[in-house]
Simulated scan of single mutants.
Amino acid sequence: MNEQFEVIKSTGEKAPFSLNKLKASLKKSGANDQVVEHIVQIIKNELYPEITTEEIHNRAFALLKRERSVFASKYKLKKAIYELGPTGFPFERFVGQLLKYSGYTVEVGQTVQGFCVKHEIDVLAENSDRFILVECKFHGDKTKKCNVKDPLYLHSRYNDVQKRWNGTHGKKPLKEVWLVTNTRFTADALQYGKCAGLFLLGWNHPKNDALKDRIDRLGLYPITVSTLLTKREKEFLLSRDVVLCRQLLGDRFFLDHLGISDTRKKRILDEMNMLCTHNDLENAND
């Protein structure tokens, strides 16, 4: 098959098909080289010019799920983040947990008095020497990006809060401000963020330390990645602020509330364990 053809991205734009990108995404699922090559060969034989990336993703997901559900769960990470919507509040909880497991003490949904007005803060994070103000920008539309208005607005809020905080509070200083999104940033947003000293964390930014990288590195997968939980069950857990697979492992009684059988419960918890423990997943491929 000639690999020199174009695929249609979720934005509607055309892009060259990349076999290496397909292999890399399959490898991230935890599947070994043999499984990856097998799936790649199947997909290569089914490709046609201007196929959508969504069709390719769905086919790869189905083939991974046939091999092992945990591979498919890891592969659908990006889609699973979108499934935290539509309100955006579960995403704030998710970002809070991401910071918590990175060593911060966190508070979600706080009201803080600024110099001029009060501000609703999505996540307030604290470590040994400082506080960090975190704004979460959730988009349910895959084609939408965070534009320059978002860091501009956040920067003005941060300045107002910091002016009062560092001037009158006998607390650790407020020294950082983060803008976290499940999508991408426009070039102007990135440029302004860099110029203003904001930390921007997006799906693919910064390079090698983006949202997707941090999730994989820490094993902090949202419960929406599960291929074994139903949509109703996921919504029930999210409504009770259970956003991470790791949380469900610690709060297993929620599965009893859902009336899940012991056999199915074991399968779900085994999947959660595999997602949260990299070594187990690697050993499963040996």
Results as ranks from 00 to 15, higher is better:
residue 72 A to C: 14
residue 129 D to K: 13
residue 285 N to Q: 11
residue 232 R to A: 10
residue 261 S to Y: 06
residue 42 I to N: 03
residue 284 A to V: 13
residue 172 K to D: 04
residue 247 Q to R: 12
residue 242 V to P: 09
residue 203 W to A: 02
residue 68 R to D: 03
residue 212 K to Y: 15
residue 98 L to E: 05
residue 97 Q to F: 04
residue 100 K to S: 08
residue 250 G to Q: 11
residue 235 E to Y: 13
residue 52 T to D: 07
residue 61 F to K: 10
residue 242 V to I: 15
residue 224 T to L: 08
residue 250 G to L: 08
residue 233 E to L: 00
residue 194 K to D: 13
residue 180 V to A: 01
residue 48 Y to M: 02
residue 20 N to V: 09
residue 228 L to W: 11
residue 258 L to C: 07
residue 43 I to Y: 03
residue 141 D to H: 02
residue 206 P to N: 09
residue 134 V to F: 01
residue 215 I to S: 08
residue 248 L to G: 13
residue 268 I to E: 00
residue 76 K to P: 03
residue 233 E to G: 01
residue 69 S to C: 06
residue 59 R to C: 05
residue 166 N to I: 10
residue 54 E to Q: 09
residue 80 A to M: 06
residue 66 R to D: 11
residue 244 L to T: 03
residue 53 T to M: 01
residue 242 V to R: 07
residue 186 T to I: 08
residue 17 F to N: 00
residue 210 A to P: 12
residue 262 D to Y: 05
residue 85 G to P: 07
residue 130 R to Y: 04
residue 91 F to E: 00
residue 94 F to T: 00
residue 258 L to V: 07
residue 270 D to L: 01
residue 33 D to A: 03
residue 158 Y to W: 10
residue 192 Y to A: 04
residue 132 I to D: 03
residue 117 V to W: 10
residue 46 E to C: 01
residue 78 K to L: 04
residue 48 Y to W: 12
residue 37 E to A: 04
residue 163 K to D: 15
residue 234 K to T: 00
residue 245 C to V: 15
residue 109 G to N: 14
residue 63 L to H: 09
residue 240 R to C: 01
residue 75 Y to F: 15
residue 255 L to R: 00
residue 130 R to D: 04
residue 193 G to V: 05
residue 278 H to N: 07
residue 84 L to W: 14
residue 221 Y to K: 02
residue 108 V to Q: 13
residue 15 A to S: 14
residue 130 R to T: 11
residue 183 T to M: 02
residue 93 R to V: 03
residue 242 V to S: 02
